[in-house]
Amino acid sequence: MGVITEYYRATSCDDAHAKAKSLGSAAAYVGGGVELVLRRNPEVATLIDLSRCGLGRIVKTAEALSLGAQVTLAAISRNGDVKAYAGGSLAYLAGHIAHNNLRNMITIGGAIGRNQPWNDIVPHLIALGAYVEIQDDQERVMPLSDFIRQREPGTLILGVRLPLVNADLHGFLWRFTRTQQDISLLHCSALIGVQESVVSAATIVYAGRPGGTVLYPKVAAELIGRPVKAETFLHAGDVAAQAVEVGDDLRASGSYRRELVRAAMVRLGEEMAGVAQ
């Protein structure tokens, strides 16, 4: 954030988008504002406040659980519908990430919009099969994984939709961190369906390798149709250790991360064994 000359209170999403479009890279939407303050962009002179745009609600419809872009992580962690969704993995993550003061500030729209490489929210949402509602020249809904790949600057994030067809599947996340508030050395998220002790559906996501979120359908394919047994997940761990790109940084070596990739599958297997029983 450079010298801010204007704080614009948008009265609607159309109003916010029109303002952002007219200013281009000199404007930024305000979610919780945390990243704007922490990582100042000298180009930005106008902040567009979205708090009056009606994006602060969690609503359950016939098809999806919709989280408005201005909903905070703390609100997500306490919401009964989110706690009931896919075993409550998103509610748990939202209630344990960063710390309490920040959880009351960080919004889900801001987390997606910024999507820093250490983000743990985006990979888990992608694993849960989330869609994102956006507004550029029109309102659109698209898979969050596509949005992250193709995102155009200036796009207004309206919210996230968690499809109810996934509500009864099992969400899993494993953040390997040095301390609870540390960023992940490795993040693994998954969504697993089980029917009669056989894996019927699987989505596997790794992040923090270091780097952003990547879906691994090849690893998921090693699980689908196989029994929920330790051997199944050990084998998937071997495949994952080959498939997942890992790297070195100051916080962990690539070879250490490769072992964590494998370990995440073992943990998933242990958890799913309990679910299957």
Partner: peptide, 13 residues
């Protein structure tokens, strides 16, 4: 009523 980090909060918010 909710705790926030005022060092990261825009006063306008």
């Amino acid at each position: 009523g909710k705790p926030v980090a005022s060092c990261l909060m825009l006063a306008a918010k």
